[in-house]
Design a protein around this nucleic acid. Structure first.
Lengths: 347, 347
DNA sequence: TTGTATGCGTTATCAA
DNA sequence: TTGATAACGCATACAA
C-alpha cells in the first residue's frame, strides 16, 4: 500500500502500476479510462490487482494539464448563511455532484472587493466556470473591474455567468426583478391597500433597485402617490427588517401594508410587529419576496413570491458543463406568487 | 490579448511570454514566482509588459504537477442551509481566503452514502485536506468505509479531520458534547426543574448521542428518574423540533423544561409552544445548544450554549495548511452557557 | 492486443 | 545575470 518512507507516503503513479503489473503505462491508462479498447482479460485483471494493491488514484493535475479538462465550478455568494444563497448553493453542489464536478464556494461577506478577489482566485485555479450569485452593484469602478475579469476569464476559456443582473453584458440566468416588484405591489393594490410601505435592502444593488422600481411603477399606474416617508432601504437581513420596520412605524402609523424586498426582511418585520402586538394581517399586511423555507412557518405564514433559487443554481452548472460558449439573451425563470395569511383580503 | 482563432481563445503560456519578451522561460518563471533572484531591471520590465499584454496567468495544473503543492481544501457538510454548518463554512472559507486557498464545499444532504462519495471525489481532486463537519454515524459499515478513506487519503498525502466525533480514530477539532449535555441539564436542575424532557435529533449520530448521555448522567447524579415518555429523537431541523414538541406535549403535560439537543429544534419547539399559548418560561422552560444567530431573536430569546462554529472551521483550515501531519488527542474548544429568557429561575 | 515516444506548462538543476 | 534541459504524471498518435 504505497511506500512508507519516513512516515510519509508517496502516492503511486501509473508507472508504478505498470511496473507492478508488468505492462506498459499505455495499457494502464486505457484501463483506467475505461476506454473501449480491446484489452485481454488476463492483463486487465493483473492491472486491476496492481491498482488495488498500490491504492493508485489518477493524478488530476496531470490529467488536467494533458487534457485541459477541468471538473470544478466556482460559486461566489454574499452570505452563505442567508437562505437566498444557501439554496442556490444547494442547487449548485447538487448538480455539480451529479455531473461529477466539485464546487468551490466563496463567501464575499457582501464586500465587493472580496468578490473581485475571489474571481481572480477562481480564474487562477482555472475552474470550468464561475457563477456570481449576488446582484451587481451600481458602481462604475466595480463594473469596470468586473468587465476586466470577464475578458480575462474568456482568454482562459473560463465561463462566467451571473444569477442576478450586473449592469453589464454578461450571460444571465435569473428572474425578472422588475416584474416581481410589480406583481407583489399589484397584489396588494388589488386588495385595496393604499398606503403601501417599502422596506428594501441595499439600494446600490441592482436586484433591489429593480424590485423597487416595479413597486413604484405600480403605484403610479394606480394613481397612488409615492410617499418617501414610508420607503426605507437598509440591508437584506432580518435584523435590518426588524429595525427598519420599527423605524417605519415611528415615522408613520397609518399603513395598510408593507412590501419587503425579500423574505428575510419580512421575517424581521413580522417579528417586530408581533412584539408590538400589531395584528398581521388585521392591522397591517406584510408580503415578502423569495419564499425561503421559513416563510411557511412564520406567524402568520408569509405571503410571498417563490423564486427558483435551486433551479437557478442547477441551470448555471448545466450551462457551465455544456458545450455552449456563451449567450446574450438573459434566461429568466418564472416565479409564482404564494398566498398565505400575512396579507389581508379587503374586497 | 491571446490568439483569437475561431472565436475561441487559447490561454497563453510562459513560452509565449518568453518569446514575446525575447527571454528564456526560466527568466519568466523567476519573475512570476518573485523569487529573490537577480534579474536586470530591463528584462524584468519587458517580461512584465509581455505578461500584461498577453494576459498571462500561470497554469495551476502544471504548477501543481511540478511542485505537488495544492491550494484547495474540501469541506463536507450535511446541510449548508443549517446555521450549524453555514457558520462552519464561513469559518472555513474565511480562513481559506486568508491563506490564498479555495474551499470546495459539498452538501451530503444528511445521507452518508453521499458523504463517502464526496470524500472520494475530494481525494481524487487531491485537495490539501478534507474537513468532515457532521457527527459520525453509529454504523459499522459507515465507520469501516470511512476508515478505508482515511488510509487512502494518507497514501495520497491528504489530511482528513473531523469537527465532530466519528467513533473511529481521526484527528478531531471539536467540542465536548457529553459535557455540553451535562451543563445544560445541570443548568435546569440547578433552577429546580424536575421533569426535564429531551428532544434530540438523529440518535445514530454520535454528537446527538453524547449530548443525550450527558443529560442522562446529570439526571442520575441528581437522583431524578429518567422518563422515557419525555424523551424523543427525530431530526435536527426546526420542523422536527416543532413536530416533536407537539408529540411530547401530547404524551405528557406536566413538564418543567425541555432540553433540546440543538437550537434548531429549540426554535421549532418555541414556535409550537407560542402557537399553543403556552408560556415560556412561565409554564415551561426551553433551552438549546449552539447559539445560532437567530437564538437571540426568538421570542423569548433562547437560553443556550455557545458553540464556536466559526472557530472550528478556521482551526481546521489552519491545521490543513500547517506542516503538522496529524494528531491524536482531540482538540476540544470551549463552549459557554448563554443565559437569556427562555429558562425560568425557580430559586 | 500491446508498447514507445511525445508533449501538456511548469519548476528546478545545472551550466554558462 | 541568463538559459538549456530534465522531470512531474498523464493521454494519445503512432508503431509493432
Amino acid at each position: 500500500m504505497g511506500d512508507n518512507v519516513n512516515n510519509t507516503y508517496k502516492a503511486s503513479s501509473m508507472k508504478d502500476v505498470a511496473k507492478a503489473a508488468g505492462v506498459s503505462i499505455t495499457t494502464v491508462s486505457r484501463i483506467i479510462n475505461n476506454i473501449d479498447y480491446p484489452v485481454s482479460q488476463k492483463v486487465r485483471e493483473s492491472v486491476e490487482k496492481a491498482i488495488d494493491e498500490l491504492g493508485y488514484i489518477p493524478n488530476r493535475s496531470a490529467q488536467n494539464l494533458r487534457t485541459n479538462v477541468e471538473n470544478t465550478v466556482g460559486l461566489i455568494v454574499r452570505d452563505i448563511g442567508d437562505p437566498y444563497f444557501s439554496e442556490i448553493a444547494k442547487g449548485v453542489t447538487e448538480k455539480s455532484a451529479e455531473l461529477k464536478h466539485l464546487a468551490m464556494i466563496s463567501d464575499s461577506k457582501r464586500d465587493y472587493a472580496y468578490e473581485l478577489e475571489y474571481i481572480d482566485l477562481l480564474i487562477y485555479q482555472r475552474v470550468k466556470g464561475i457563477i456570481i450569485a449576488g446582484g451587481g452593484y451600481e458602481n462604475d469602478e466595480y463594473k469596470k473591474q468586473l468587465e476586466d475579469r470577464l475578458l480575462k476569464a474568456k482568454q482562459q476559456g473560463i465561463k462566467i455567468l451571473a444569477l442576478a443582473p450586473q449592469g453589464i453584458s454578461i450571460p444571465l440566468i435569473s428572474v425578472d426583478n422588475f416584474s416581481i416588484g410589480e406583481k407583489m405591489c399589484q397584489l396588494l393594490v388589488d386588495q385595496n391597500h393604499k398606503n403601501i410601505a417599502f422596506i428594501g435592502g441595499d439600494n446600490s444593488v441592482i436586484t433591489n433597485k429593480e424590485r423597487f422600481e416595479g413597486y413604484l411603477s405600480v403605484l403610479k399606474k394606480n394613481n397612488l402617490k409615492m410617499n418617501e416617508n414610508i420607503i426605507i432601504h437598509g440591508q437584506f437581513t432580518w435584523e435590518a427588517g426588524y429595525a427598519n420596520c420599527k423605524e417605519l412605524l415611528a415615522r408613520e402609523n397609518k399603513l395598510d401594508a408593507i412590501l419587503c424586498v425579500n423574505d428575510n426582511i419580512a421575517v424581521g418585520a413580522l417579528g417586530y410587529l408581533s412584539e408590538m402586538k400589531i395584528g398581521v394581517p388585521s392591522d397591517i399586511s406584510v408580503v415578502g419576496v423569495g419564499d425561503i423555507s421559513i416563510a411557511q412557518y412564520t406567524n402568520p405564514p408569509l405571503t410571498t413570491i417563490r423564486l427558483p433559487f435551486r433551479k437557478l443554481g442547477k441551470k448555471a452548472v448545466e450551462f457551465i458543463c455544456s458545450e455552449e460558449e456563451s449567450f446574450t439573451d438573459p434566461i429568466l425563470l418564472d416565479s409564482e406568487v404564494v398566498i398565505r395569511d400575512s396579507m389581508k383580503f379587503k374586497l
